[in-house]
Design a protein around this nucleic acid. Sequence first.
RNA 1: GCGCCCGUAGCUCAGCAGGAUAGAGCACCAGAUUCCUAAUCUGGGGGCCAUGGGUUCGAAUCCCGUCGGGCGCACCA
Length: 582
Amino acid sequence: MTDARINLHADFTSVIHIALTALEASGTLPAGLPRSTVTCEPPRDPSHGDLSTNAAMVLAKPAGTNPRALAALLVAELEKEPRVVSAEIAGPGFINLRLTDDAWRGELALIAQSAADYGRSQMGGGKVVNVEYVSANPTGPMHMGHCRGAVVGDALADLLAYAGHKVIKEYYVNDAGAQVDVLARSVHMRYREALGETIEIPEGLYPGDYLVPVGQALAEEFGVTYKDAPEADWLILFRTRAVAAMMDMIRTDLATLGIHHDLFSSEAELQASGKVDAAEQYLRSHDLIYDGLLEAPKGKTLDDWEPVELPLFRSTKFGDDQDRPIKKSNGAWTYFGADLAYHFQKSQNADALVDIWGADHAGTVKRIKAAVAALTSAEGGTPKPFEVKLVQMVQLLRDGQPVKMSKRAGTFVTLSDVVAEVGKDVVRFTMLTRKPDAQMDFDFAKVIEASKDNPVFYVQYAHARICRNLKKGTDEGFMPSAENLGLLGEEELALVKLAAQFPRTVEAAAVAREPHRIAFFLHDLASAFHSYYNLGNDRPEKRFIVAHDSALTAARLFLAAQIGQVVRNGLALLGVEAAQEL
RNA sequence: GCGCCCGUAGCUCAGCAGGAUAGAGCACCAGAUUCCUAAUCUGGGGGCCAUGGGUUCGAAUCCCGUCGGGCGCACCA
């Protein structure tokens, strides 16, 4: 097993910890120095060395000495590590480590041995994380407003799984609110239309053509039965059929992006099962729900506002601005009331919860966090870990002009149109090459025109180049081999050093819940590869295939294969194809 | 009025839970192909990291104020 070494950087962090412990044990340093602030990471400037630690600087004060004196002590310890060639003190007290070339060659062999698992981490310890994302209302096809959260959520879920969690990908189907009644009425119009009536979709209903086939199917199945029937006769039936049709459409749309959820949870079923009542009773028994007067909304003046008594959840106890109603005055559950129970249900089947929401729902974060905290710690203990990750708005532009989207007006840009136009890989990579908590522009004209310049092709091209070279090598009788990795020099090992940061990048990205870091890492790795590759233009001895030197060629092809492996692993994490050729 | 997010090159964005002279792509200028589809590479110009304070050995990064942009502030979903 090589798992103890699977992350070189973590491994050397422990080497530093051991050195500190040795100095404490010998009485050279006072015992009990903190370790948490000690880092071990590659320096920005590679000329400083392979790894750098701030240990001397952050521990000088607690150790009662100065950074450079402490660094000198640590250097003496660190030089005992066989993989360390040199340990030097630099600047205000950095310790820069250089590792032996063999250590890096070993890392290269480790990539080959681990293959698709290189970078996989045990960090998550098998803890179950529920990631809920998309959860778009089932009232129409996916549009570009949903796209970013969908991609980010999916990539995050995969990232967490790769980092050692058990992940549940979940979609919450909001099939219980007023919007699905509107949907049902809209479908009823289409149903009448399918029966030959000339219709005009009234203001307030969904006018989209996508409901036409739903109406036709109902017309075929039920004929004129519900044509002139009162709404009460058909509403539930039509709603059920319409939601099912919308969810089929949404699943199809998501599939074009390579997104597949493990679990679709229905709000209507949740309510019907009595779980919402149970959650209410539970919170009431802990005095976290009471009947009280709802405050008027702040910052707005509503003409028809009247105070009304409703069952309120004490979210102010957990930092919210006001207590929130769980039921409406007509007795129906509010969205929040059902959502509260829904999160309770999720928390019972997972060790941690992550929700991916659009920034337009930011205002409800506090209350739902309050609800989870209340439900999972009402009887003591620590609340279940729960994060809401907000994905900022995507400003859609066409030739620099904002595109306004409205589902009710039927003016929206569908996800499937965009995917059909620029491709899944471009859409995914574009959404993942920026951090989620900043707004972004998505200009169709630019993305479509510039799709050739999209960074995703840059990364894929590196992979394709590697594949073609390996194939060419094979055709000419050269096989990649780890036999003579000693022939790889500084320029080749520089590539290995960069690739070796992949496991560390995976862990950091998982902890920060930032899949975009993988995308940037891949771009850097591809860039280093392309640079190296072009060395061969002027210096034929730097090519992967050096016809007269089969041992060197075998080692170089081995290097190429492993760089390709890391690129493949990274792209797989992002759900982007690693094409063999472009 | 209140809450959350953002402000880094002309443009689009990174900056790894504070670290060593601030990075990439696009655009602009000048160059480079007998392993490989140049979908690539090399070099150049271009920044008071919005702004004012604070914290400390050290701040683009953390804290507070100000300015600017976005989102939200229903028994909606």
